[in-house]
Simulated scan of single mutants.
Amino acid sequence: MDWKQNLVEDDAGVREVLANSRRVAVLGIRSESSAHKPAYAVPHYLQGHGYDIVPVSVHGEKGPILGQPVYTAVADVPGAVDVVEVFRRAEDIDGHVADLLAKKPRAVWFQLGIRNDAAAEKLARAGIRVVQDRCMKVERMKLEQEQAGSASV
């Protein structure tokens, strides 16, 4: 398979990643004291919509966050991870690629405003699906609206 097929750039691919993900490791999560920041608000929303959130701190936060123990590396998270949601600046992602490759989640999701094509290529070549520059909360809300619309037809 061509590795470029692992780069998710269309709505159908985004829907597929969301629909097939339950366990989300959040790299760069913030604690409740930063509830106004997307790095807390987005995983909080996802948890409220049935996702199992696994906090991975890079800012020194101590656990628990969202009632879950906090890990310092994605590879340290026990069990399988469906998707790693990344709240890191684009230039900081390169420092996490080896950790992400070690865990080998089904997908890695760079939050809205975050693109790192070189890191995305490395992950995609390893068979990991990659979403860039999209908000997981916004995309989940769009999916819910579509499902509600089709249910009322």
Rank of each mutant, 00 (worst) to 15 (best):
L7D: 07
D10F: 08
D11Q: 13
E16C: 01
E16S: 13
V17Q: 11
A19K: 15
S21P: 07
V24K: 01
A25S: 09
A25T: 10
G28M: 07
I29D: 04
E32P: 08
S33V: 12
A39L: 06
A41V: 00
A41R: 11
A41M: 06
V42M: 02
V42R: 07
P43H: 05
Y45D: 04
L46I: 00
H49E: 14
G50A: 06
Y51I: 01
Y51V: 02
D52C: 04
P55I: 13
P55R: 12
V58R: 07
H59M: 03
G60Q: 01
E61N: 10
G63A: 10
P64Y: 05
I65D: 08
L66K: 08
L66T: 10
Y71T: 10
V74C: 13
V77P: 09
P78N: 14
G79P: 15
D82P: 09
V84Q: 07
E85I: 03
V86F: 02
A90R: 00
A90V: 04
E91Q: 06
E91K: 09
D94T: 05
D94I: 00
D94L: 07
D94Y: 01
D99P: 07
L100C: 09
L100D: 11
K103T: 09
K104E: 11
R106M: 03
V108M: 06
F110H: 03
G113L: 03
I114F: 03
R115E: 15
R115L: 10
N116I: 07
N116D: 13
K122Q: 15
L123R: 09
A126Y: 07
G127C: 14
I128H: 10
V131E: 03
V131G: 03
C135D: 12
M136C: 10
E144R: 11
E144C: 02
E144P: 03
Q145K: 14
E146H: 09
A148E: 12
V153Y: 13
